[in-house]
Design a protein around this nucleic acid. Structure first.
Ligand SMILES: [Mn+2]
Ligand SMILES: [Mn+2]
Ligand SMILES: [Mn+2]
Ligand SMILES: [Mn+2]
Lengths: 221, 221
DNA sequence: AAATAATTTTAGACAAATCTAAAATTATTT
DNA sequence: AAATAATTTTAGATTTGTCTAAAATTATTT
């Protein structure tokens, strides 16, 4: 039951999970790119994870996580996001500084630790980037969120998450006075450069670039 | 400046630090025993740490940590003990459950993380076992503590730390109503079995075994 | 001072995770 | 349907950390 996984194996499992969530199917090359390694190394690991029944894999035929694999991946995601929440809410880290540290903390193996941390944090539902945190059973809040570029004009919505976690994005968001939870409407869409005119209650309307809009996800309210 | 150390290297450095603190000098065999590995593996690592200037080592002539080595060791001890404090004080772990988890957490590399954790915990001076926590500069509170077996009769003292961190010891201490901070006196020493008669204020005197007394350290008050 | 014992080191092997270069397979063009 | 391109896999090497067995050194007895 209790399989022991190396940090490397866990990183592969999580990367495959995220890629197949986004894409449906995953390729050797994509995994290599995501983990900054070589396709040959990925193939080696695919064989190993198949061996451990974490992956359904037939060579040249593609691969997907097994049920066990998905369960393991959700456990790692849970740890990653709970630690990020802890770092921001309790240790006063910035939003943009937590990912790398969480990348290490997610591999601490104690189940008891993570469940006690969850309780200490009072069972948060979303991490600081707006991504849902799986609970102890791997269930997480559905996120009926859409990209800001797809929000209909004059539809009030709240910023729910960001697609990128860079310091540069955070800097821009601070300057524009946008944070997770900020309520806004799109007033106009400009076809020339796909920029958007945005209105936040009590402020003057202003324009944001296509790049920025694509990095923001919102929930309609 | 920023040397990258593997978890394995860090565990060796910390083990050597503790052994040379206790003993003055350390042997290959002792390190092997401490880390549950073989002397041949230790020799391999000694060469590697000498290479990295963490260790002063000449074959067959023994070894000691260099200044750099001691600085690194203190950093690891700092992380270990701060995490133990966090686990007990914030996450409600028991005293006897934290060591293994801290053994993993001590290898999380972020300096910022540990300094922010220190601040969050309000700069604790001692870990849950009574061991001093090095500050950001590696300085820690002196511990003028002695073993309970060496405490003079009728000398009031406070329990300051334990030499062993087992669940079994904790169970016995709970039953005897002794915790870190408990004030007590030795009333009698029995030569036959080296048991001690102990008095805690407001309680009847009782006897503790040599084994228990050896596991307890006290500060005179 | 020899002999014996204990400790420490070397030699050689192995597993995990990685890489480069080449081969095999699948996909896309022409 | 060939040719070409892209992807994926294999073959063989390398690094890290480990091991066992044997050799070298140091310590202790006799
Ligand atoms: Mn993250
Ligand atoms: Mn990671
Ligand atoms: Mn400990
Ligand atoms: Mn450790």
């Amino acid at each position: 039951m209790e399989i022991n996984l190396s940090v490397t194996e866990e990183n592969y499992i999580k990367a495959i999970y995220h890629l197949q969530q986004a894409d449906g199917n995953v390729s050797t090359n994509e995994v290599a790119k995501e983990l900054a390694t070589k396709p040959a190394s990925v193939t080696d690991m695919l064989k190993k994870l198949k061996q451990k029944k974490i992956l359904n894999y037939e060579k040249y035929q593609g691969f997907r996580l097994s049920n066990d694999g998905r369960r393991i991946a959700l456990g790692i995601v849970r740890k990653h996001r709970l630690w990020e929440y802890f770092l921001v809410e309790k240790l006063q880290f910035g939003w943009d500084e937590v990912h790398e540290v969480a990348e290490e903390l997610e591999h601490i193996s104690s189940k008891k630790l993570i469940d006690k941390l969850d309780a200490f944090l009072e069972y948060p539902k979303f991490d600081p980037h707006g991504d849902p945190i799986p609970d102890v059973n791997g269930k997480m809040a559905a996120q009926p969120q859409i990209n800001l570029t797809d929000l209909p004009v004059n539809q009030l919505a709240a910023v729910s998450s960001v697609g990128i976690q860079s310091t540069e994005l955070l800097e821009l968001l601070k300057h524009k006075n946008i944070a997770i939870g900020t309520k806004l409407e799109v007033k106009k869409k400009f076809a020339f450069d796909n920029s958007l005119e945005i209105k936040i209650k009590g402020q003057n309307a202003f324009t944001i670039s296509q790049q920025l809009a694509q990095a923001l996800f919102v929930k309609m309210v």
